[in-house]
């Protein structure tokens, strides 16, 4: 077996294990950490496909930022899993139908002509001077520039909406104005008084 295949199977095994643990583990914090592991190993798999930009972006964005905030929230919430588990039988039909639908969709997509071995040949190996990042950038900003810009604007709107939804001004909170604080001089606040020492009675 070639080295790459060994690496692939090792990473794939870790990925399947981590993904399974995300939904089976009891502790939500452990589940989130397994999700981090799953992201990290899939980034490793992408590296094998010479998609180094996507792999590093996955680690940078999902592992480095999104999952940190996710863990942050999960740790603060202190979720109790037991009551959630009690509804298992009640939600089982809905869950099973959603799962069945997803399997059907994946089956339809994967067996179609556009995804079989003829339509999707093995990606060609590139030399050491091939830059995946440069290629991706040049395509993204020429051929797909409109789609890219539209996605950017949608994200911007989502950011503004998220901030607008969570920002509320409460009258009892007290804010400090940094500019005012910087302007403060000691002469305005402190008065130095010279006085004679007093005799204790």
């Amino acid at each position: 077996m070639a080295f790459e295949q060994v690496v692939f199977y090792v990473f794939a095994a870790i990925l399947v294990y981590a993904a399974t643990r995300v939904i089976t583990v009891r502790n939500p914090v452990h589940a989130a950490l397994h999700l981090v592991l799953a992201f990290f190993t899939s980034a490793g798999l992408w590296l094998l496909l010479e998609a180094e930009f996507l792999a590093i972006a996955l680690v940078l964005v999902y592992v480095g930022a999104v999952m940190v905030l996710f863990l942050f929230v999960v740790m603060m919430l202190n979720i109790n899993v037991e009551p959630v588990r009690k509804g298992l039988l009640r939600y089982l039909p809905v869950g099973l139908s959603v799962a069945g639908l997803m399997i059907l969709e994946m089956y339809l997509v994967l067996r179609s002509k556009s995804f079989d071995a003829d339509a999707m040949p093995m990606p060609a190996r590139h030399g050491a001077d091939y830059s995946n990042t440069r290629e991706l950038g040049s395509v993204l900003y020429t051929q797909y520039v409109y789609a890219f810009e539209i996605a950017a604007v949608i994200l911007l709107v989502a950011i503004i909406a998220a901030i607008a939804l969570t920002m509320r001004k409460r009258p009892e909170t007290r804010h400090q104005d940094a500019a005012e604080q910087v302007k403060v001089r000691s002469q305005d606040r402190v008065r130095v008084i010279k006085m004679e020492s007093e005799k204790r009675n």
């Binding site: 590093i56 940078l60 592992v63 990042t133």
Partner: peptide
């Protein structure tokens, strides 16, 4: 090739 990104990704971990 993408060493700067690699460092940024790892320091964020």
């Amino acid at each position: 090739d993408a060493s700067l990104l690699y460092i940024l990704a790892l320091t964020s971990m």
